[in-house]
């Protein structure tokens, strides 16, 4: 349980980090909080030749309001900073509700927002959150920078649209739409453990009280964060009665997800959880969108 040798670089500016990424490309790994990377290195599941440690670049650790009423979160912002941010609590209540579910306090003290997004663990909450709210990821390299929509960023198991020389430097969260409601539901064996299944929901009600733009994203049930498009289609344009919500949750479980079985839970059990948690999330999100206290 000792990590293999690597060449270590700790740049103090982003420019320097991007230069190192351009030089070392495929052989390099970015060290952010290290809460997943160092564990996999200890197991020798990962053996990067070069580590580029971003912990000495203060400009990557920020939480700022955006002109559109959302928030910009720097990639090296620790989970605990996001959890305790008043700006996040105000502008991104779904994220505020999600943060306490991410691992344990010791991990949240060290783990980073951008690290979790870039790692793209299919059981992690933040990738599902980012898809639910249509967040965007800022990828930078020596060649330039680009914003990547969350829907295009996560492409598979621990896989993202990042090029080998790109670093995630920030994440942009849109403002909460008018008449919108949100909910986060999770089941894990122990508080802070990886979710067996979790769901992140954000939806809007139109002037007549019918569902518009339903975003329901799951973690723990696929190769990445799974967007429940079939369930959203059931709800679209419908008033969210208990029957409609029940039907949408059932479709989410039958059509939108294809969960695997592992030592933690069977596929059938995960499917059952998708149904139950989707129902709870949709009910709570609709109530919030209608202005009710939840």
């Amino acid at each position: 349980m000792k990590p293999p040798p690597f060449a270590y670089h700790a740049p103090t500016t982003l420019d320097e980090a991007l230069q190192l990424m351009a030089e070392h490309g495929y052989g390099a790994k970015v060290l952010a909080g290290g809460q997943s990377l160092i564990a996999t290195m200890n197991f020798r599941l990962a053996a990067p030749a070069v580590l580029i440690d971003l912990n000495k670049i203060p400009e990557l650790s920020i939480i700022q309001p955006t002109a559109e009423g959302g928030a910009l979160v720097g990639a090296m912002t620790r989970h605990v900073q996001v959890e305790q941010s008043e700006l996040i609590a105000r502008t991104a209540p779904l994220l505020h509700a999600t943060m306490p579910h991410i691992a344990h306090p010791q991990i949240r003290n060290r783990g980073t927002f951008g690290g979790s997004i870039a790692h793209a663990d299919p059981a992690a909450e933040l990738p599902a959150f980012l898809r639910a709210v249509r967040g965007q990821v800022l990828a930078q390299s020596r060649r330039g920078q680009r914003w990547i929509d969350a829907d295009d960023f996560f492409i598979g198991l621990f896989s993202t649209a990042l090029e080998p020389d790109e670093i995630v430097t920030a994440v942009r969260l849109p403002a909460m739409p008018a008449r919108s409601g949100w909910s986060m539901q999770e089941l894990s064996r122990r508080h802070g453990d990886f979710a067996l299944v979790a769901v992140e929901a954000l939806l809007t009600l139109d002037a007549d009280g019918a569902c518009d733009d339903v975003r329901l994203a799951f973690c723990g049930v696929g190769e990445g964060p799974v967007l429940a498009t079939a369930a959203a289609a059931v709800l679209q344009g419908q008033r969210p009665t208990a029957e409609v919500i029940e039907a949408a949750a059932a479709i989410a479980a039958s059509d939108d997800v294809d969960p695997h079985s592992d030592v933690h839970a069977t596929s059938a059990y995960r499917r059952h959880l998708v149904d139950v948690l989707a129902k709870r999330a949709l009910t709570a999100a609709c109530a919030r969108a209608a202005g009710e206290e939840v």
Binding site: Y8, A10, G34, Q35, I38, A39, N42, D53, N55, V80, P105, Q106, I107, N109, R110
Partner: peptide, 19 residues
Amino acid sequence: CTILFDGAAVRSCLMFAVQ
């Protein structure tokens, strides 16, 4: 292996000494 790193509880097995 939890220690206080700049006052915050962290796992010392998930950090390198150079950090």
